[in-house]
């Protein structure tokens, strides 16, 4: 599936909760618990994204031209949000990740988590993912 298809799938999933934010958050927490964990050796200072309140670890690899992310966070809601983004971006090309708008976050009513005042490291994580994607694109251009 491409990024847009996964976004659509997530939107449909969240539509089931309607206005019930409690169920929505329970779902986010569940996703956080099921996030494929970053290997301990990759929980390095280089991979840490510091928000004021919660921290995110993110590791990026490139396999067969697709980006593979593993991550973790010390706060479970942040971890759930990280899991959603990783689900959208995993196995996508650097080009697609770099161009992604992620409008679905607004649609599923979780935009507040991307506000800079949340200080949860999530916004910085998305920036890092896109930056990593751009770096890989530039890197491959240089190789040509």
């Amino acid at each position: 599936m491409n990024i847009e298809e996964i976004e659509k799938e997530i939107i449909e999933e969240f539509e089931l909760f309607g206005d019930n934010w409690e169920e929505k958050y329970e779902h986010i927490i569940d996703m956080g618990k099921n996030l494929p964990k970053i290997a301990d050796e990759n929980k390095t200072d280089k991979n840490i994204i510091t928000g004021c309140q919660s921290r995110v670890w993110l590791n990026t690899e490139l396999k067969n031209g697709k980006m593979i992310f593993t991550a973790d966070s010390d706060a479970i809601i942040t971890k759930g949000m990280v899991a959603i983004i990783v689900r959208v971006f995993n196995n996508q090309t650097p080009q697609d990740i770099s161009n992604a708008q992620l409008n679905f976050i607004n649609v599923i009513g979780l935009k507040e988590h991307l506000s800079p005042t949340r200080a949860n490291g999530l916004l910085s994580m998305i920036r890092r993912m896109k930056q990593d994607a751009k770096n890989l694109m530039n890197g491959s251009n240089n190789n040509n």
Binding site: D74, A75, T78, N120
Partner: peptide, 10 residues
Amino acid sequence: NQHPFDVGSL
């Protein structure tokens, strides 16, 4: 075992 951020957010 819970992060204060999670409790505060909810």
